[in-house]
Simulated scan of single mutants.
Amino acid sequence: MVRSTINKNVFILGKKLYHPTGDYIAPKTKIEKKVVTIWGEILKIQGIGITNIFFESGGNSLKALELVSKIRERINIQLPLRFIFQKPTIAEMASYLHTSLQTIKTEPITVLNKVTSRNIFCFTPIIGYGTVFSELASYIDSHT
């Protein structure tokens, strides 16, 4: 049987308090501020810094699903659930989201073969990630 301890300092008068594990670093960018707001709503806590880890801050698998959903609604980027495990801090999430938004704005179409006179264009699914076609592109240049 696995035993766990209960931290009695976490709940006081029915309100959840948050005790960060490291130094607090405030959000600076617009995206970091949006993600902090989303986390606060989902985890029902305040004082979240950009280096806090989602699952150490009270997140769980159901809240991770809610996080992915709210990011899609408010930032308009569809993330896979595994993303929350791969980039569990606000700083990592915001950096990825910022890069994704720039990619979406600058590369809406992916040209797979630039060698031939007839180009093949693939329109990426929903959010514009051209990387989904990278393996396909490796085969096309050798075919005309």
Rank of each mutant, 00 (worst) to 15 (best):
H19T: 11
T103H: 11
I42Y: 04
I12D: 04
Q102H: 04
V68F: 07
M93S: 04
V35W: 02
T103L: 08
S57R: 00
L136A: 15
I75R: 08
K105L: 09
C122A: 15
T116E: 12
L136E: 03
L43C: 10
N52Q: 09
F121C: 02
L43G: 06
F11H: 08
V111P: 02
I50W: 00
K105D: 12
S138A: 12
K87F: 14
I126L: 09
I127Q: 03
I77N: 09
V132S: 14
V132K: 10
I104M: 15
T110L: 10
M1R: 12
H143M: 11
Q102P: 03
T21L: 14
P80K: 10
F123D: 08
M93R: 04
S57K: 00
L101K: 07
L112R: 08
D23S: 06
A137E: 11
R74L: 14
V115P: 02
G47M: 01
K44I: 15
G47W: 01
I140G: 07
I45G: 00
F11G: 00
S142V: 10
L97G: 09
Y24K: 00
L62N: 12
F83E: 08
T5K: 06
V132C: 10
G14A: 03
Q86L: 15
I75L: 08
K70A: 06
Q46F: 13
L67A: 07
I38Q: 05
F85Y: 15
E73L: 09
S95W: 01
K33P: 02
V115H: 05
T37P: 02
Q46Y: 07
E107L: 13
I77M: 03
K8H: 13
I104H: 06
S4R: 08
N113D: 11
P88L: 04
E32Q: 02
K87P: 04
V2W: 04
L79A: 15
W39E: 13
R118C: 05
K105P: 11
F54C: 00
E135P: 12
S134K: 10
R118P: 01
T103C: 10
Q46H: 14
Y18D: 00
K34L: 15
F123H: 09
D23P: 03
L13W: 11
S61G: 07
F121H: 05
I31M: 09
S69T: 12
C122Y: 14
L97P: 10
G22Q: 11
L97W: 11
G128N: 03
V111Q: 03
L136Q: 13
D141I: 01
G130R: 04
F83A: 13
L97F: 08
V35A: 02
G14I: 07
I42H: 03
C122L: 15
I25C: 03
P88W: 01
G40V: 00
K8D: 05
P27Q: 02
I48M: 01
F123G: 13
L13I: 09
K30G: 02
L81P: 01
I12R: 06
I104C: 05
I48V: 15
H98F: 09
